[in-house]
Simulated scan of single mutants.
Amino acid sequence: MRIINSRGYELEKAQPNTSEDFFNRSEVTFEDDGEEKTLHVLYIRYYDETFAEFIPTMRGETDPIFKIGEKQITFKDLVAITCLIKNPSFRHRKRIYINTQEELAGYFEGVNIPKTREIFEGIYNKGGYQLTSSLHFLLQPSS
């Protein structure tokens, strides 16, 4: 699977009586068996403000998580790619909705966030990143 892009953004109200402005969307675009696909992950915006509290591997982290040249990689940029790393079967889905902090924390549990920098470096410096195994991005248990 080749990762082409991963980005996150805040939704804006389409109508005055809607609640889109309470949500963020994170997207990862990838090629799988020659077909381009995008996984859209919708979650409550408040989690961006509190992620360091409920994701053990990110304690003390703040946005941006890291920079690639001038590009700032924020928490919302990481959500969809982390979900795909943690659950590779999501490559067959178009959308997922995360409605609890516990569920979101579960996707980040055991993922080596600093190593995900390699994916973003590939995207921004080489136009993509070949993901051969999600296992490369999981924390190894200490013996």
Rank of each mutant, 00 (worst) to 15 (best):
N87Q: 14
I81R: 00
T100K: 06
D48N: 15
N24S: 11
T29E: 01
V41I: 14
T50L: 13
S89C: 11
K76F: 14
G60C: 13
K37I: 12
T82Q: 05
N112C: 13
F54D: 13
E31I: 15
G127R: 14
I123Q: 03
I3T: 05
I65R: 03
T132I: 03
T132K: 08
R2V: 09
E10S: 04
G69M: 03
S143G: 01
A80P: 00
T100V: 06
R2A: 06
E109R: 15
P16A: 00
I68P: 00
Y97W: 06
T50C: 13
L131A: 02
S26E: 08
N17M: 07
K115F: 11
S134H: 11
T82M: 07
F75N: 01
Y97C: 04
L84K: 03
R59C: 03
Q140A: 06
Y129K: 07
Y46T: 04
T132A: 06
E102V: 07
N99C: 04
N87E: 15
H92A: 11
E102R: 07
F30E: 04
P16T: 00
S133A: 12
V79R: 00
N24M: 10
I73R: 05
S133D: 13
V41R: 01
E121R: 08
E102K: 08
E53T: 11
T132E: 03
E35S: 14
T18L: 01
I123H: 05
S19F: 03
K13F: 00
G60A: 11
V79D: 01
N24K: 04
F90N: 11
R91H: 02
M1P: 15
G69P: 06
K94T: 10
E36A: 09
Q101G: 12
I119T: 02
D77P: 02
E31Q: 15
R45M: 12
I113N: 02
D33F: 14
N112I: 12
Y9D: 00
E35N: 14
K76A: 14
E109Y: 15
I81T: 08
R45F: 11
E61I: 10
I68W: 00
P16R: 00
A80V: 02
Y124W: 15
T57P: 09
N87G: 10
Q101C: 07
N112G: 10
E118W: 06
G110N: 13
S134W: 08
S143I: 08
E27A: 06
G69N: 04
M1Y: 03
L131C: 12
E49Q: 15
N24L: 13
N125W: 07
S19I: 01
H40C: 04
Y129H: 10
